[in-house]
C-alpha cells in the first residue's frame, strides 16, 4: 500500500516539478561548451562500427553549439567561440565519418569565413573529397576558398572546373572561366553565399550568412556605381562622395557590420569593418590550426 502511495505522490510531484526543471535546464543550455574531443584517428580505432554514428553525433553537436553562439558571431565577438575545439570536433567527426555531408559543409561554413582558418578548412575538404569524388559541392567550396581567401586563382579555376564537370551547371563554368584570368571576388562570394543560404537548414547559421550577403550586395552595388562613374567620366572616383555628387547613387549604404565603405587606390570597394575578417584580427596567415 505504501508503495502505491509513494508512487502516486511522487508522480504528482514530478508532474508539477517538470516545467520548472526544464526551464532551469534551458538556462544551462546557453552554457553549451564543446570541450575537448579525442583525436579522430584514435577514436576510430576504439569505437569500431560505432564510428559512423559518432561522427554524425559530433557534427550534430558542433552545429548545435555554433547555432547557440549565433549572437557572438553576428556581433563578431569571435573570441567567445571555441574555434579550436570546433575545428578538432569537426576534424574528429570527418575522420570518423568522412561521408557525412554535414560535417564538411559545416566545417566550410564555420571555419573558412568566420574563423579564417581557410587552410584548415581546405585540409578537411580535400580529405573528404577523396571519399566523395562525385560531390560537386566540395570542389565548389575548395574553388571558393582558394580564390576568395587565398587568391590562388589557378587552383580556384581548377576546382571550379571540377565542379563544372560534375554538374554541368553554367554557374560553375562561368566561375571557372572568370577565375582563369581575373579575380571576381565579390561576385563569386555572392554566388557562394546565396548557395550556402539555400543549402542551410539551421536558422541561426542562415542568419549569419544573410548578414554577410547583405554587406556583399552593398559592396557590389557600390562597385557597379564605380564602374558607371568610370564609363561616364573616364576616370576613377577619388571617394564615394563623388558618386553621390555625380548623381549615380543617392547615399552611401551602411555596412551591416558597422564599418564604413571606401574606395582603394585601384578602385576597389572595401570597408573599415573588413567584413570578412576572422576571429583573430590581422593574424590570418599565422596561427593556423594544425
Amino acid at each position: 500500500m505504501i508503495k502505491y502511495l509513494t508512487f502516486a505522490v511522487s508522480l504528482l510531484l514530478m508532474i508539477a516539478f517538470m516545467p520548472h526543471f526544464s526551464e532551469v535546464m534551458q538556462q544551462r543550455a546557453s552554457l553549451v561548451k564543446l570541450g575537448f574531443v579525442p583525436k579522430g584517428e584514435l577514436y576510430k580505432a576504439v569505437v569500431g562500427s560505432f564510428r559512423w554514428f559518432e561522427g554524425e553525433y559530433y557534427t550534430f553537436r558542433s552545429i548545435v553549439y555554433y547555432g547557440s553562439k549565433v549572437k557572438a558571431v553576428m556581433k563578431r565577438r569571435y573570441n567567445e567561440i571555441e574555434y579550436y575545439n570546433l575545428y578538432q570536433t569537426l576534424k574528429a567527426a570527418i575522420i570518423l565519418n568522412p561521408y557525412n555531408e554535414d560535417a564538411y559543409y559545416f566545417a566550410q561554413a564555420a571555419l573558412a569565413w568566420d574563423a579564417r582558418q581557410v587552410k584548415a578548412a581546405i585540409k578537411l575538404l580535400e580529405y573528404v573529397y577523396k571519399y566523395r569524388p562525385w560531390d560537386f559541392q566540395i570542389p565548389f567550396f575548395l574553388g571558393f576558398d582558394y580564390g576568395y581567401f587565398l587568391h590562388d586563382y589557378k587552383k580556384a579555376g581548377e576546382y571550379y572546373r571540377d565542379a563544372a564537370n560534375l554538374t554541368h551547371a553554367s554557374l560553375f563554368v562561368n566561375l571557372a572561366a572568370k577565375y582563369l584570368y581575373e579575380g571576381g571576388d565579390t561576385e563569386s562570394a555572392i554566388i557562394y553565399l546565396k548557395y550556402m543560404i539555400s543549402q542551410t537548414r539551421n536558422k541561426n547559421i542562415k542568419k549569419i550568412y544573410q548578414k554577410r550577403l547583405n554587406a556583399l550586395l552593398k559592396v557590389e552595388f557600390l562597385q557597379k556605381a564605380v564602374e558607371k562613374y568610370k564609363t561616364k567620366f573616364g576616370k576613377k572616383p577619388a571617394s564615394l562622395k563623388e558618386l553621390i555628387d555625380a548623381g549615380i547613387i543617392e547615399k552611401i549604404p551602411e555596412d551591416p557590420y558597422g564599418g564604413r565603405f571606401y574606395i582603394t587606390k585601384n578602385g576597389k570597394i572595401e570597408t573599415t569593418s573588413k567584413l570578412a575578417e576572422g576571429w583573430r584580427h590581422g593574424s590570418n596567415t599565422s596561427n593556423e590550426f594544425k
Partner: peptide
C-alpha cells in the same frame, strides 16, 4: 540535446 535542437535551434 534533442529537445534543445527541436525547440530552439530548429
Amino acid at each position: 540535446g534533442i529537445y534543445d535542437y527541436i525547440f530552439h535551434s530548429a
